[in-house]
Design a protein around this nucleic acid. Structure first.
Length: 135
DNA sequence: ACGCTGACTATTA
DNA sequence: CTAATAGCCAGCG
């Protein structure tokens, strides 16, 4: 049985303007995304939808990907290369410096990628909803 | 303020 | 099997 999971009902993105740095005490949707992504173990990958679901906004997978876009400039370095779509495809590879950089990083972590698709995806898939509990 | 866009996903044809 | 559509919600012009 999947425990409480907080159920904040649509966490509703705090929507603090990105133009201003989010405060640590006022965790925004993006901050949570970054935290979860940083928690992804090496050699594992996850999907945008899984992160969104963990945050309570299952249908907002796009927001996760969009948050990744902003994550590039972050100091703590968010391993966005470990986040792929539900099919295990490297959909965000074009947002990296080079289209091959994302795959390169994945392979560096022993993650096999072929034709922009993560091999053994289901096996190395890291689901925060199952691996983590609501803080 | 309105409408379009997007590193997504699940459903339907 | 593949292709199109609807839902999702914050940012930007």
């Amino acid at each position: 049985m999947p425990l409480k999971k907080s159920n904040k009902s649509k966490s509703k993105i705090s929507s603090k303007k990105l133009t201003t740095p989010p405060a640590k005490d006022d965790i925004s949707f993006f901050e949570k995304v970054y935290q979860v992504v940083r928690l992804i173990p090496k050699g594992r990958v996850t999907s945008y939808g899984a992160i969104a679901a963990y945050l309570g906004s299952k249908g907002s997978a796009r927001m996760v990907g969009w948050a990744m876009n902003a994550a590039h400039n972050l100091k703590p370095a968010v391993p966005a290369h470990r986040v792929v779509n539900s099919a295990g495809l490297l959909t965000g590879k074009f947002h990296f410096g080079s289209s091959s950089e994302m795959q390169n990083r994945l392979e560096k972590e022993k993650i096999k990628v072929e034709n922009d698709q993560v091999k053994n995806f289901k096996n190395i898939f890291w689901n925060p909803v199952e691996e983590l509990e609501y803080d």
